[in-house]
Design a protein around this nucleic acid. Structure first.
Length: 423
DNA sequence: TCTGGGGTCCTAGGACCC
DNA sequence: TCTGGGGTCCTAGGACCC
């Protein structure tokens, strides 16, 4: 039996979240910025129409923003994360087989459903999510995830589709593929798109009909899978419980470059501490710690990048231990005389925290460390993150490396003090 | 002056071992 | 003259996704 997937994707998600709590933004150009208010990472349709590209540095867009009164927001992840949960809960009403693919997208397995009813079902999903959460979505339905992506994209853009497109009827499929340019296909990025165009493949239909050997040569196994998916043969099944993480990264750019070792030390300690929290939340421990450091890559002169990989003697998620290793790695890569723009830590080769892998002598110590970490996490959970912190992360008043968010909306749904007020 | 963050998968090449 | 073959582990880098 062939499979059927629906892809439900929130329209301009971050902007839509802002609009739910500030309806005055409806119909107006709105953008949401990345950390440090650096780049544009979400745009309303009106902002797209003004030619503001995805990822554009905001300082380059100042003229357009001023001229058209574009509303600008810092990203408010507490709000978006919470809204995302509400959307996903609404989706789970329609089938238990939901894969949360990203903060604003989910795949639904609709394989058991009758073909003729799919579009109606899609419309029902569309209106339910909108009514329950206020967030507009698009729904694409097809035999594979890749085709569902294509259907979704057309559903979002076409007036006629009204937010829902069912491609399981082969009548429409070839036409849909023909109007989908190669760079808009899931799995085709800039470099593959350039290659495909260079061999005369310009849209998804031409790609589907291309010879396997040609694609395999340049795009490898993933390329072959892509061909199969376009032909309606599903290669990517629904993944409901995501496999355990293999890697955890915490890194940030600094608003202003740092030339002082003490500041970089603090930042690295803070990122390590956050990473250790993520490890414990995922019930994982790290065997490898990587610390890295870089100057501003957009500035040609005096560029520096370096990283140090450290294999830990045994796996751990203990904050103070990890900070010690991160600092010792930093010792080896830190060079005086540079102004650093970004640093980070990566935990690799993660193992489960359920088995204790250490020497007999360390056993008692390990138990103590685990208890301290449990207490640390539960205090922060109860009283808000950073209620207790490690001294190495510096005094909050002087953290020069701290990310800046100057135009942030309130945490309407996750903070009692910031609930929306109706007057 | 001002340019995000966090992931995954795949491939190639070197070191090392038997 | 003729200089093996294969496996594993690691790292780096490239490609993609949101």
């Amino acid at each position: 039996m062939s499979s059927t997937f629906a892809l439900v994707d929130c329209n301009n998600f971050y902007v839509s979240c802002e609009r739910v709590f500030n309806p005055g933004l409806m119909g107006k150009p709105v953008v949401v910025l990345s950390n440090n208010d650096g780049c544009v990472i979400a745009r309303s349709n009106e902002a797209k129409a003004l030619g503001i590209p995805m990822g554009a540095p905001v300082f380059k867009m100042q003229d357009v923003i001023k001229a058209h009164g574009v509303h600008v927001y810092s990203s408010n992840y507490a709000l978006y994360g919470d809204m995302s949960q509400r959307v996903m809960e609404a989706l789970s009403e329609f089938t238990p087989d939901v894969e949360i693919y990203s903060i604003d997208e989910a795949f639904l397995d609709l394989s058991g459903f009758k073909r003729g009813d799919l579009a109606d079902y899609g419309r029902s999903i569309w209106s339910t999510v909108r009514t329950w959460t206020g967030v507009p979505v698009s729904v694409g339905i097809a035999e594979t995830k890749t085709l569902a992506k294509i259907a979704n994209r057309i559903a979002k853009k076409s007036e006629k589709a009204q937010g829902v497109l069912d491609l399981t009827k082969s009548l429409y499929r070839d036409r849909a593929l023909a109007i989908t340019q190669v760079e808009d296909i899931w799995g085709v990025g800039r470099s593959y798109a350039t290659f495909l165009r260079s061999v005369g493949i310009n849209n998804a239909l031409e790609l589907r009909n291309a010879p396997d050997s040609l694609i395999k040569k340049k795009m490898g196994i993933p390329g072959l899978r892509l061909l199969q998916e376009l032909r309606g043969v599903s290669c990517y099944p629904l993944e409901q419980c995501p496999p355990p993480k293999n890697e955890i990264t915490v890194s940030r750019s600094f608003k202003h470059p740092l030339g002082d070792r003490a500041d970089v030390n603090e930042a690295v300690a803070a990122y390590t501490s956050r990473g250790a929290e993520k490890l414990r939340a995922a019930h994982r421990e790290a065997n490898i710690l990587v610390v890295f450091l870089m100057t501003n890559p957009y500035h040609r002169e005096s560029r520096y990048f370096n990283m140090k990989t450290i294999r830990l003697p045994f796996s751990t998620s203990d904050t103070s231990e990890l900070i010690r290793y991160a600092h010792s790695g930093l010792d080896e890569i830190y060079r005086e005389g540079y102004r650093y723009k970004k640093a980070g830590v990566i935990f690799r080769d993660l193992s489960s925290d359920s088995h204790i892998q250490t020497t007999l002598f360390d056993y008692g110590q390990k138990e103590t460390s685990k208890e301290i970490m449990r207490a640390f996490d539960s205090i922060n959970q109860r009283f808000g993150s950073n209620s207790v912190r490690y001294a190495a992360t510096g005094s909050t008043r002087n953290q020069k490396w701290k990310t800046v968010r100057q135009r942030c909306s309130p945490s309407y749904t996750t903070n009692w003090d910031q609930l929306p007020k109706v007057s």
